[in-house]
Design a protein around this nucleic acid. Structure first.
Lengths: 242, 242
DNA sequence: CGAACTATTGACACCCCTCAAGACCCGTGG
DNA sequence: CCACGGGTCTTGAGGGGTGTCAATAGTTCG
């Protein structure tokens, strides 16, 4: 029973382009409902064979892998517009877990709809592949950062990355944006210890490059922070499909 | 002008399943030629808008990102059956480079064929998305390793990973397989310095867990090495499409 | 024979991890 | 109301893993 999706961030390849009639029809056809998730709750678990795919309408979360020894690697941060569960839809099961950080509302699709997309909507199918390739690209960037850069560079890069995504999503008020994660989340994402991440954040704050407090991130000068991250100004990133 | 592709590792989802007639026809239709690449040669450069996609018929290579400061991150190792250039085909340009290590022979496809696949061969298109999702999965594993594990564990994990892929491809003679990379390549893949990688390889050799010499890797006991890598026995990995 | 690349080994420094303790916040229950 | 516990953030001390620098040797190639 398709539900009207007032807020579903279905997009063409352009960020924030208006919906076409075709896209609206497409959305309503495949959407099967909405779902609200409490903070700090697992949405998908590694190994799960989920029958649903999700799109984030609001709230934030993390993709992560739990290690045997108790460690955790945060793969990336999940923001509004992100697609969740494509792995379970295309492969047989999830290869990582997804948990909410905030309270999140999700747009729900049935996995079976995927086949219909590939059969009847080749352009949408192409978009799905594009989405997956984009994820691959970002993971490569992350890998290069974790593998090759120092602690300060990693933290600066991570904050910069998520701030840019927030900007593209319209989450930022000028130089501020909400960031409900814990320092532990960031540490696990960057491959640093919690303590060292904390001390590095303090350094960034002292240098007035980035201040992250009470769930709000402030970056006075993107360029200065980018210098600290040793990255060139990058591709503007987020282009959600649904 | 389609070229007969005697060796093209087109597969169904099963590793080494025989070709179906449909698959053979599909291959020949999209293949536009073969290509031989000298060792140590770039095949695709980051930022390139390549008109071709490739499949590896033989030889080995690396996917990598060159950093501004001279560093290099090896994203992963390219083995026979791997697909190269999907990013350039789906997105506008390559987000990483690909270079040969060995002498490689490649199967060449025209990028324009991609659209035809999505329009007329939804099952193949699904396979492409599956491929991309699989890459994403492996990158996640790598990220977790680099981000969370010690040097010894990383090296053990890396050797194990590539050995298993070699096994699946039939490249291994029992406990040995050819491995033409340099220690520098491995170091750049694992986020370790060359020197430390060397010393860690020595330790693995002394413990008789893995011996990598003269371009050949020998692993006497996969289980023992897996213990050193702190990984559970994983999903058997490589299932190439083309 | 020299140049370039690769592998190896030692010395040393330092980044980052671990352990530990305390502060602050907030919910719960006595 | 206060006590208590859990989660998060913060700071200090100490140690070890890892990076950097440097030198040697083996190999290939011209």
């Amino acid at each position: 029973m398709p539900v009207k999706c007032r807020n579903c961030p279905l997009r063409k390849r352009e960020v924030f382009s208006p919906f076409t009639d075709d896209e609206l029809r497409f959305m309503e056809h495949f959407k099967s409902g909405e779902m609200v998730v409490d903070p700090k709750t697992d949405i998908l678990l590694e190994g799960a064979k989920s029958a649903q795919l999700f799109t984030v309408l609001s709230g934030m979360g993390v993709r992560y892998k739990q290690l045997e020894d108790g460690g955790r690697q945060v793969i990336n941060f999940v923001l509004p517009g992100d697609f969740i569960g494509l792995q379970a839809g295309v492969m047989d099961e999830m290869k990582h877990s997804v948990a909410s950080t905030n309270s999140m509302t999700l747009c729900v699709f049935q996995r079976t709809g995927l086949w219909e997309i590939f059969e009847k909507h080749p352009e949408r199918a192409f978009d799905l592949t594009w989405l997956s390739a984009r994820e691959e690209h970002f993971l490569g960037e992350t890998l290069a950062t974790i593998g090759q850069r120092s602690g300060l560079e990693r933290v600066a890069w991570g904050l910069l990355q998520i701030f840019r995504r927030g900007q593209d999503l319209g989450l930022s008020n000028g130089r501020r944006m909400p960031l409900p994660y814990t320092q532990h989340d960031l540490a696990d994402a960057l491959g640093l210890s919690l303590v060292h991440t904390n001390k590095t954040l303090t350094r960034l704050r002292e240098r007035k490059l980035a201040t992250w407090r009470n769930g709000e991130l402030e970056i006075p000068d993107l360029g200065a922070l980018a210098d600290a991250a040793a990255t060139d100004i990058p591709d503007r990133a987020t282009r959600p499909l649904f």
